[in-house]
Design a protein around this nucleic acid. Sequence first.
DNA 1: TGCGTTTATATCGCGCGCAATACAAATTGT
DNA 2: ACAATTTGTATTGCGCGCGATATAAACGCA
Lengths: 157, 157
Amino acid sequence: MKSPPPSNARALRSADKLKLETQLCFALYSTLLGVNKVYRSLLREFDLTYPQYLVMLVLWDKDRVNVSEICDQLFLETTTLTPLLKRLEARGLIRRRRSAEDERQVIVSLTDEGRALRQQVKHVPDCLGAAMGGSLEEIVELRDKLKKVRSKLFEAA
Amino acid sequence: MKSPPPSNARALRSADKLKLETQLCFALYSTLLGVNKVYRSLLREFDLTYPQYLVMLVLWDKDRVNVSEICDQLFLETTTLTPLLKRLEARGLIRRRRSAEDERQVIVSLTDEGRALRQQVKHVPDCLGAAMGGSLEEIVELRDKLKKVRSKLFEAA
DNA sequence: TGCGTTTATATCGCGCGCAATACAAATTGT
DNA sequence: ACAATTTGTATTGCGCGCGATATAAACGCA
């Protein structure tokens, strides 16, 4: 009713910026909670978590990569990936072996079961597209805007 | 070079949909990793995590709410919030008391220290805006598109 | 009144996600 | 050749985030 207009019509008052609905970051955060929720129900039958599924995506694209290359592609730390990879190995989807050329490196490769899984999950991206709604154009646009924000964030941090 | 064009020029082949760079979900996931990274460095001095900060945002907007109302606003489960709230209480920022009217409810309220913290962090949203770049219009547009995706995801799951 | 159901919160177990730290292999500089 | 540095991975500790489960309070209804 009597809310005073800010001096600059495009700016927000400090109090408004502290509101949840205003914040892009919270929209991102809460949307990802929804993404995880959907992936959980989709990947449940394969006994996979979403981060594990992401590692499989990396390997299906390029087999036999070392740990730090997976780190780089997924924006994750070794600390996160080492135990995750061990679980994938225990599950029988991947193998981990020290490189012969460079003993420091651990080469991650797909097992036959890991390779075979690809066919079973190939419908998953479509399931998510359906769950999120929107046209292909909208999805591509949103994705590329996020990538831009992501690169800004990682160079800022 | 010799990649066969799909029957529908706007559609993607199943193999391409399984690539990381193609996926909107991974863009979301990895962008949030960047968001968390920036928030960690910003909130470090206040000894706050990002989810804890979100709870404070809820309380600064409306003091004296029960746990499930915080759950609803943050899209989180009680399971996540109960221990988080205990940590905030141990840190001296909030109080937790059983409601007198309904003994099942736990009413969460700000301490003086919790209320005072608001002034100290009010620059944080601007810091993130700067870290993410982009105009206010772009941010608002991206935020609202994410909200739309979020509502779809939660009704799908 | 009494009994089944719903609601609100809590406990437990597990898998991320990262900072701090450790350590061995590889590389570099002298 | 050897010491210092860098690189690649692993270990530990802690805070989410949620499914499965538990429990007490409130409610509904015969």
